[in-house]
Amino acid sequence: MSAAAEKILATTLARVVAVERETHDTFTLSVTPVEGEPPEPFQPGQFSMVYVFGVGELPISISGDPADTERLVYTVRSVGQATHALVSRKPGDVIGVRGPFGTAWPVKEARGKDVLIVAGGIGLAPLRPVIYHVLRNRDDYVRLIVLYGARSPRDLLYRKQLAEWGRAPDTQVLVTVDYGGLSWRGHVGVVTTLFRQLRLHPAETVAFICGPEIMMRYVIRMLEARGVAPQDIYLSMERNMKCGAGFCGHCQLGPYFVCKDGPVFSYRQMQPWLDLHEL
């Protein structure tokens, strides 16, 4: 057996070096391998299989800066037993990571264009590496537009960063929430309502979308109505995953294994299947 083949299923021990509280239920963990080499480089949109001792293994998108070669960063929302165990890790704790797996947002192909990011909820996490990448390679892109929707103000991720990004040149960050509450002075409504505030150049735009499927479907409709071509729209799909390598079969979606053919798909690939109920 070649070393590479063995590695697919072998987890690498990694030490938690920082835990940041993003919201009441979401935390960002930074990890570095316990010994030896720095982590495998990743591309924006890829994920790791993250193992928590005795609890299980989860597919988690990498939410850090791809230029940071020292650490792997995961933003995790505590929604079940395994994610709860993961966000409960403290600095110094050791977890296991495999990967990175999956396809990436096509940041190279988007060069010379406007990059439009549309995210819902935790869906901003797999898109943050794109924002890091665009801001770091600012001259390669024209405008950076981030549309971000969350349930309520207390569910907004990366609030400080959102403000910072909004101040960057040629960058527009629009945030909305479903329920504002009394102290919220920002926009209220689903993420598609933000399109009214936008002047899109459809032929010069590449759109990256990640969020609940229903949200992605509406965003795609909005983009199509505004003339963005299906091949310029990309989305990240979520399915149950046990292995990350196409062996366990859980992540199938029509002809695809989301773990290796995705999670990032062009809308052209996903178009025939996206509206089929329970596919």
Partner: peptide, 15 residues
């Protein structure tokens, strides 16, 4: 085809 001739090699099957 599934375990040996795709993107990854499944080591347990291969062995």
């Amino acid at each position: 085809r599934v375990f040996l001739k795709d993107a990854f090699v499944e080591p347990n099957y291969a062995s």
